[in-house]
Structure formats: C-alpha cells, structure tokens
C-alpha cells in the first residue's frame, strides 16, 4: 500500500494490541481521580469482545469496566462501534440477522449475559434503553409508562398510578403532563417525547439505562433538559450514553470511552479524556481535528 492511500488507522498510532494495558489502565486511570469521584464497584465488565455483523467485524477486542451509578459516555466518529457495543449490553443486537459476539464475554454483575441460562427478557428488564429517535407508543402517556409493568402482570391501579407519578417526576416531565396523562404520547413535543421514553424506561426500575444518542434529534433547550435529567438519574441508575456531541459527554458523564474504527482507544475519567488524554488519537478527536 502506498503512502498516499494510508488509512487514518495507519497514520495514527495503533491501539495497544494486548489487553492488560487497556483493561487495567482505565481502571488505574479511573482510580487516579478517586479524590473527586466517590469509590464504586464495576457493574458491567466487557472482556475482550469481538463483534461481527455477518462477515464484517464491528468491534475488535474491546475490554471495559463500567462502574455502578456512574454516567459513562461512549464517544467516537460515526461507525466506530459505540452504538454496537451499547446494543450488546442488553442484547438488542440479537434482533439483527447475522450479528454475533464472536469472542469474549460481557458480564453484568458478574453474570455472562450471553450464557445460555440467561433469559434475555429478564436481562432487558434490568437493562433499559432509550433510543436515538424517540419512540413513544401511540398510546396515552399513562399507558406508555405502565406498559412495562403491565407486561410483568402488575394490575394494581394504585401501584401503577404511583409508578407513573414517580417515573414522570423522575424524568422531570410530571409538571408538564400531569393534567393530560391520558392524552396520546404522540402529542408531546420532541423533547417531551424523549423524556417520556426515559420515564418509560425507569418505570420498570432497571439497574442500568442505555441511551443511544438520546439528544441527537432534539433542539438545544430540550437537550439541556435531558442532560439535567441524566444528572439526576445517576443517583439511582447506572447510565451508559452514546453521543456524538463531545460537549455533552464532557458535561454529563463521569467516565468516557473513546472508540475508533471498532477499537477502544482510551477509557478514563471524563476530565482526563478531555483535559489530558494519554492517546494522541483521542486528543486529535476531542480537540476536533477529525471525526
């Protein structure tokens, strides 16, 4: 291959091939700013994962540990595999033909989620998800939120009412919609719809909430509301957020993982990633030189 056709991958220093530096280094990096972050234990343990869509490999040997009740941001240019990894965490990739984890394992609370004994339905109850495009069901707000609970067989009206209020308050939507709980969820504005989806996700009380570019379709005001919400939510939930917007990652996450071409380049506390990245690729990306 001639020098003129060098891919960015080759121009930039390749990520360390062996796992110890990656798997351990982030932990070390994370423990370094222990002074400003409360100590916590890992809830998600991604271990040397190779992921394929049919023949094409989307993730190369990714290892990561995410902490409980923290916000972790996945950043990186389009097609770098961040969404793929996110969708691995609650096995939404199962729905795609030919998608598979070829190597490695993902453990949540120590349990390999791809093990045959794991019930994917139960897994998804524990690991909620908010999508890029807000997708409220064409039902009333009330029914949108109670959907998950009703699936679990909860019929008690009092309890459902309580959950609706709690979830809507949790999603900072209660005051805006409390008078029209039985109006269609499709009648809300874009930002409200997305918060409704978040309320819907937290109504089933998951441990982890995955957010796949939740603000990419929202205007700045709605975005800031959702970001505030994320801040509130991390008191109770572990949050993993995929974002294109580096300011957003800087504003609302505790730890940040930078992906590039299907590889994890760097994983550290958000401040470290943005102020003092150890990898030149990361620096190039966060300073806006490519991506």
């Amino acid at each position: 291959m001639s020098a003129a056709t060098l891919s960015p991958m080759e121009r930039l220093p390749a990520p360390p091939p062996s796992s110890p530096s990656l798997a351990v280094a982030p932990v070390a990096a994370m423990s370094a700013p222990a002074a400003d972050l409360p100590p916590s234990r890992p809830i998600i343990d991604i271990d040397h994962v190779d992921f394929f869509y049919g023949q094409s490999q989307a993730l190369h040997d990714v290892s990561l540990r995410l902490d409980e009740k923290k916000v972790t941001a996945f950043i990186g240019p389009s097609g770098c595999g961040k969404s793929t990894l996110l969708r691995c965490l609650n096995r939404m990739n199962d729905l795609i033909d030919g998608a598979r984890v070829a190597k490695g394992s993902i453990r949540i609370r120590g349990i390999d989620i791809h093990a045959p004994a794991v019930d994917v339905i139960e897994l998804r109850k524990r690991v909620g998800m908010v999508f890029q495009k807000s997708n409220p069901f064409p039902k009333s707000i009330y029914e949108n939120i109670t959907y998950g609970l009703r699936l679990q067989g909860v019929k008690d009206k009092g309890r459902l009412d309580a959950v609706v209020e709690k979830s809507l308050r949790g999603a900072a939507l209660w005051d805006e919609v409390k008078d029209r709980l039985h109006a269609s969820g499709l009648g809300l504005s874009g930002g409200q719809q997305q918060r409704l989806c978040i309320a819907r996700a937290i109504a089933v009380e998951p441990d982890i909430i995955l957010m796949d570019e939740p603000c990419s379709a929202l205007d700045p005001i709605s975005t800031s509301k959702v970001e505030e919400l994320i801040h509130e939510l991390k008191k109770e939930f572990t949050i993993v957020i995929v974002t294109h917007n580096m300011q957003q990652a800087a504003r609302c996450s505790d730890q940040t993982a930078f992906f590039y071409l299907g590889r994890l380049i760097e994983f550290a506390a958000t401040r470290t990633i943005f102020m003092n990245p150890s990898n030149p690729q990361t620096e190039a990306y966060v300073s806006g030189r490519f991506g």
């Binding site: 234990r41 453990r107 609370r109 120590g110 349990i111 390999d112 045959p116 004994a117 794991v118 524990r126």
Partner: peptide, 27 residues
C-alpha cells in the same frame, strides 16, 4: 448451577449481587 463462574477479579462482588441481577432463567 449452570451459571458460568464469574471471573476471579469480580467474583467477590458477583456472589451477593447475582440474586439482585436476576436475569438468569431461574424462573
């Protein structure tokens, strides 16, 4: 019993948490 033993470094955490994870097909 079919549960895959967690990796050594997370084992300490995993054992008490396993019940709360609750997504094994033990139902």
């Amino acid at each position: 019993s079919t549960r895959i033993p967690p990796s050594p470094e997370t084992q300490a955490d995993a054992t008490p948490a396993a019940t709360s994870a609750g997504f094994l097909a033990n139902k």
